[in-house]
Design a protein around this nucleic acid. Structure first.
Lengths: 264, 264
DNA sequence: CGCACCTTTGAAAGCTTTCAATACGGGTGG
DNA sequence: CCACCCGTATTGAAAGCTTTCAAAGGTGCG
């Protein structure tokens, strides 16, 4: 049984029962395909279905009146494109396919009925939204208070980590289907400066790149440069400690006895 | 019956039934008070309860290793401080009281049981999270692609709008309990530059301020300066059009027949 | 072969930050 | 009551990081 990327992402870090994942698999959905640079959803479009990216990369973005673009979030397979489709009427931003991409779309009412029956799946969806929020918060810090070099290093480390969650890339190698201009738009930099910064990291021996593949040759140096850790990805949340799946009520105050917070 | 700010915020823009709101009111909760500049929650603290800000202002923030602070989000009465408490184990950021503040805290298991029984309340909580995400996205655009002047104008307009959702301030006046340094940390600017920018807006006749009160004397000029609209606040979402509360299944594709999207 | 898009580099211009120094206002202790 | 301290607000000037403007090189594709 082949679960799609969303289930894979969930399985890895938030315990959703096998049965619930199977139920999700059998929920009717539409599959839609997009070419690279095609709009998946645009600002002011109605949000009538729940969209999940299954293959390819995409971005959320917005444009200023001066025509500048800000990429808000980079979307990977398994990411939920419209976690708020249940409660929000129209999109306040654009979603653009970076590469050829496919999505699954679910009727939000059907999905909702399913969630009512399968609380662990509902929790999984909520976890996914929480992870997304964590990434948004980190993106704000990245753009607001870090130098160009640190911004880039931080984004690359995060992307590598995220890719690892849904696949097993070659060690330290990131298949990055984004132009430098797109990276710049994500980081709030100009394309020119992004280029200089990237080459600077390369000269420093921290990254290497050729075409689409980017190798983080010195991840610890990169991490030190930008103070990276991945607490914001919310990776340590086994279901038995969450309130959703346990009916036991949970301890009033639990110790912060977490085990392995990786910070690379 | 006096609902607290959260209910007020919900009632205004996302239809939650009166009965559900009452049920929320009667759910056992703790009330905790904080002094200005006191930590409400810190990075790595366990998230064991659902926290809702009832009075006072607060901020989410993070610090870089160089000691710089980025304020991620400004929190007003009625905002949910830990919407992800159900599924996330520990906090990845700090929450600081800006003013004297009080919060209500709920056991997350009890709250969860309540939500299972009251789908419209669950939808309301989800809407709240969606609004929060919308604000985070907009904050990214603000910081990433706007000039200092536009950033400030945009933030002030958003804050004014948000304050209007939970109270009825004097026309165009914003009671802003933040120092210029705090505003600067929110906007990714230095305090010095924020000061200059603020005075510039003042000289241009767009704002006026004395102490804590800031008047947006020319809101349309401000809005034009930064291209403000409040689509991201998700204000037009009557429940009867969402999938959550209607059991009818909803139309496959609904027209974007929204009525009043305010943009000034 | 020519067009289109992406990458690179240099140089000047510009917006923001940093550094310094001066006020201002409230609260405290002498 | 007043000196004093501290956090906040202001302003000037220099330094710095990024952007913009320009131009050249590469690569893929019709």
């Amino acid at each position: 049984m082949t679960f799609h990327a969303f289930a894979r992402r969930l399985r890895k870090h938030y315990e959703v029962s096998q049965a619930d994942l199977s139920a999700l698999e059998s929920l009717p959905c539409e599959t839609r395909s997009f070419l690279a640079k095609e709009w998946i959803l645009q600002r002011e479009d109605p949000k009538t279905r729940l969209l999940i990216l299954t293959t390819g990369w995409a971005v959320r973005s917005r444009y200023t009146t001066e025509g500048q673009r800000q990429i808000i979030q980079i979307l990977l397979p398994g990411d939920v494109l419209t976690p708020d489709a249940f409660v929000v009427r129209q999109s306040d931003h654009d979603i653009l396919a970076l590469t050829r991409a496919t999505i699954r779309t679910y009727d939000r009412a059907e999905m909702h009925r399913l969630l009512l029956d399968l609380p662990s799946l509902a929790a999984g969806l909520w976890w996914s939204a929480a992870q997304e929020e964590g990434m948004l918060r980190e993106h704000i810090v990245r753009i607001g208070r870090r130098s160009a070099r640190a911004r880039l290093a931080h984004l690359l480390l995060e992307l590598y980590r995220r890719v690892c969650l849904i696949s097993t890339p070659e060690e330290n190698c990131l298949d990055l289907p984004m132009s430098q201009a797109e990276l710049a738009d994500a980081l709030g930099l100009s394309a020119v400066h992004l280029n200089r910064t990237l080459r600077e990291l390369q000269r420093a021996g921290m990254v290497e790149y050729s075409g689409d593949t980017l190798c983080l040759t010195d991840r610890s140096a990169l991490a030190q440069l930008c103070d990276y850790d991945d607490l914001h990805l919310q990776l340590d949340n086994s279901a038995d400690e969450s309130a959703f799946c346990g009916t036991s009520g949970g301890p009033a105050e639990m110790q912060s006895n977490t085990s392995d917070r990786q910070s690379s």
